[in-house]
Amino acid sequence: MSFYGVELGSRLLLGTSRYPSPAVLGEAIKASKAEVVTVSLRRESGSERAGQTFWSLVRALGVRVLPNTAGCHSVKEAVTTAHMARELFDTTWIKLEVIGESDTLQPDVFGLVEAARILSEDGFEVFPYTTEDLVVADRLVEAGCRVLMPWGAPIGSARGLNNVYGLKSLRAHFPDIPLVVDAGLGVPSHAAAAMELGYDAVLLNTAVAEAGDPVAMARAFALAVEAGRTAYLAQPLEPRDMAAPSTPVIGKAALGD
C-alpha cells in the first residue's frame, strides 16, 4: 500500500492524542505497529516546552507524521495551518480537516474541496477528512487528492461504520484511490469490518488512547486490521437471506418414517 508514492507496511494509522502519559503513547504506537501517526500544532509560550518535548518523543519513535488541521472551521484557517504544519514537521502531507458542525464535527465538504484545491496546487499532498459522499469524493480527486479519508462515524463517537452501504459504494467507485476510514471507530471489530470492505487502511485515536489498557488495545487493533485485510483478499461470502446447508444432504441415511 502506498500514499503519494510512499510504501507502507502497516495499514493502521494512529493518532497521538488523549493518552494517559507520553510513555503509554510510545508503547501504544509500538504495539500498533503503525508507521504513520497523526500530529497537530497548537500555541506555545516562550516559557513552556510541551511541544518540544512531544516532538522529541515522536522523533525517537521513528514514525512518519501526518499533521492535521484539526479545529479549523474555515478555508483560510485550514490553509494557513497547513503551511505552518509543512514547515514545522517538514512534510508535504496534510490531513485536511475543515469542520462544518460542532456537535458532530462533520466536515464542511464545500470548504474542504476549496482548501484541498488550494493546497494541492501549492504542492501539498492532501489527505482529506471527508464524508462518504461520492460526489464530494469526485470533487476532491479533481482537486488533486490521491487519498480519501471518509469518516466511519463522528470523531471520538466509537460508533463504528455508520453507513456501510455508502462506504462500499465509495470503494467500488474509486478502486484505484487509497481509501482510509478515519474517525468513529470504537472497537477492533469496526476496524476489521472496514478492512473487509476493501478499505486500504484505518485511522483511529480515541479508541486506543482512552481504552483501559491502550497498549493492549493498540495490539488488538493491529490484529483486527490484519485479519480484516486477509479476509478481504480471501474473498468473503456475500450474505444471503435463506439458509444453505453446509453439510451435504446427498447420501444422508434415510431414517425417517
Binding site: T38, V39, S40, R43, G51, F54, A70, M84
Partner: peptide, 10 residues
C-alpha cells in the same frame, strides 16, 4: 502574532 509548536493530534 501566532506561535505554534508540535502537539498531540488525532
Amino acid at each position: 502574532i501566532e506561535v505554534v509548536a508540535p502537539m498531540q493530534g488525532g
